[in-house]
């Protein structure tokens, strides 16, 4: 099955996000911090009069503190009516790929296993497909 994916890179890892969920890609602007939110939530930013929750993608995968650097891009996705900006270092292309695996094997890091919905082969390399809906789950939902 062929689908459109956006390839992005953060913290040295390349991963793919299904283009269906993506609304736009913007450059991170001013971010208002949100105390007491999930640790990997960098804060809120405004995109054309809408409020976006900025998520540090890599931090969410490893469940650690968010850290947004200048010049990062936000992949804006809509999950259950809420907009999230997934921070990535670089955005590559949107291409049609076919999905290969349903689940990652046990050899992968548990964080990546949790957020992935499969793998694709892009330009001869295997790339993990990240599911935005899992990336933005509250911490309590992860524990449960």
């Amino acid at each position: 099955m062929e689908k459109l994916y956006l390839l992005a890179e953060a913290d040295g890892s390349t991963f793919a996000i299904s283009a269906d969920a993506i609304e736009s890609v913007v450059t991170a602007g001013e971010i208002v911090p949100v105390p007491l939110a999930a640790s990997w939530v960098a804060g809120l930013t405004a995109l054309r009069s809408r409020v976006i929750t900025v998520v540090d993608t890599i931090a969410s995968i490893y469940q650690r503190e968010a850290e947004i650097r200048d010049g990062q891009s936000l992949v804006v996705v809509n999950v259950d009516g809420n907009l999230y900006g997934l921070a990535v270092d670089e955005v590559h292309d949107v291409c049609e790929y076919s999905i290969e695996l349903e689940r990652l094997g046990a050899s992968f890091d548990s964080g990546w296993r949790r957020v992935s919905s499969g793998m694709i082969e892009a330009d001869g390399a295997a790339v993990i497909v990240v599911d935005p809906a899992i990336l933005v789950l509250p911490e309590t939902a992860i524990a449960a």
Binding site: V34, A37, V41, T53, V55, N82, V136, L137, P138
Partner: peptide, 11 residues
């Protein structure tokens, strides 16, 4: 006022 994302409302 709009509801915030669940990862924020959870606080």
């Amino acid at each position: 006022v709009k509801p915030a994302a669940p990862c924020i409302m959870a606080s």
